[in-house]
């Protein structure tokens, strides 16, 4: 459902199913996503982490995913993102009554060498 969002379509983000059946997002590189020459824009990497967090919520059948109320996000940029396909996956750390804590990772060719990680708090109800 996240890939139906106009903003996800603006970035070219699509849902992606891992070999183990878990879902994530994939984002092909394009000139419109470039920051300094040859590198993905940092804000784009942050945005795909955020969309992955919302996709994880949607995967739980969480209604908050349809009208998300983000509280905050913290992004660590670990490596420069190259102009190649990027993947992002998120894991719900705690589905509380009022707040959801989500961790997300973004990687490119090597999943063991992520380019960014993020932590997000999202309000439920």
């Amino acid at each position: 459902m996240i890939d139906r969002a106009p903003y996800a379509q603006l970035l070219g983000v699509r849902e992606w199913i891992d070999a183990d059946g878990s879902t994530g997002l994939v984002m092909p590189a394009s000139v419109a996503l470039e920051g300094r020459l040859g590198f993905l824009y940092g804000g784009v990497i942050g945005s795909v982490l955020e969309l992955a967090c919302l996709a994880a919520l949607a995967g739980e059948g969480e209604v908050a995913a349809e009208r998300p109320r983000p509280i905050n996000i913290t992004i660590d940029f670990l490596r420069g993102g190259l102009m190649v396909e990027s993947y992002a996956q998120a894991r719900i750390v705690r589905l509380g009554k009022r707040v959801v804590n989500v961790d997300a990772t973004c990687w490119q060719s090597d999943r063991e060498s992520p380019i960014a990680t993020g932590r997000m708090h999202i309000l439920r109800a």
């Binding site: 969002a5 903003y7 603006l10 945005s47 955020e50 009208r67």
Partner: peptide, 14 residues
Amino acid sequence: GFLMDAGSGLVSSG
């Protein structure tokens, strides 16, 4: 293109 949901008018934080 900034919207999360074209119907609701919710703006993405991206």
